[in-house]
Simulated assay, not measured.
Amino acid sequence: MSDAPVVAVRGEAYREVAPELARFTVTVSARDRDRETTLTRLAERAAAVRVLLDAAGPVVERRENGQLRVWPETRRSGERVVAYHGSVTTAVTVADFTALGELMLRLADQDQVEVAGPWWALRPDSPAYREARHAAIADALARAREYAEALGARVTALVELADTGLAAAPPMLAKAAYARAGDAPPELELDPQPQPVQAAVEARFTISEPVLG
């Protein structure tokens, strides 16, 4: 077996699959000359955001409180504080895309709230990754068989298989469109972005003795 001819190939697979998650951030801000007033307003606005997220129920799969920032605003000529600023950011993960636009608009309608996103992604354990790996192995075997056939031989055994990496595109920002007609509530149309998934393997196979000439 060790003296058998060997063919080395690379197998690749590329897929574009529907996203499984959408992530966006909600940032509440406050500003006032008095520090305590700034903190109070910030807490109240953050609480209002929490109420809306709680009301969304299972639509919100996960939420994480991010960075809290409180800083003074000073005059250029010295250290005299003229106002205090504060902000709190919450990262929200949603799996139900049908309710995503409505939820984002409700949050954006709050006082001193900034909403950014969504960014589309796959779950870390998405079946798409497994399917891509299987497809890459199948591609490697198909290539090995093609080379063997061209030599008048056939693939006999696998010698080595190496995973060269599984790649997924970074989260992609959605395309959004707002529409308002008269007194009707605003609507937000979101186009989920397909997620590219790519897998590659390197494989070595033994083949039967080639028929040359």
Rank of each mutant, 00 (worst) to 15 (best):
A167M: 06
A167K: 10
R180L: 00
D163T: 04
L173D: 00
G182Y: 07
E149C: 03
P171T: 08
A150Q: 15
G182C: 10
Y178C: 02
E189D: 08
P124E: 12
A167F: 06
A167V: 12
A176T: 15
A174P: 06
R130K: 13
A128C: 08
H134F: 10
L190T: 11
A179L: 02
A153K: 01
D163Q: 11
P186M: 03
A177W: 08
R145V: 00
A144Y: 01
A138P: 02
V159W: 00
Y147H: 13
A138I: 04
D191R: 12
A157W: 00
A144K: 10
A176L: 15
A140Y: 11
L158Q: 07
L190W: 10
A168S: 10
A148N: 08
I137F: 06
P185R: 03
V155N: 11
R133E: 14
G152A: 06
P186V: 00
D125R: 14
A169L: 03
A169S: 09
A179Y: 00
A148M: 08
D191T: 14
A168I: 04
G182H: 09
E189G: 07
A144E: 02
M172D: 05
A150D: 14
G182D: 09
E187P: 00
A179S: 08
E187S: 12
R130S: 15
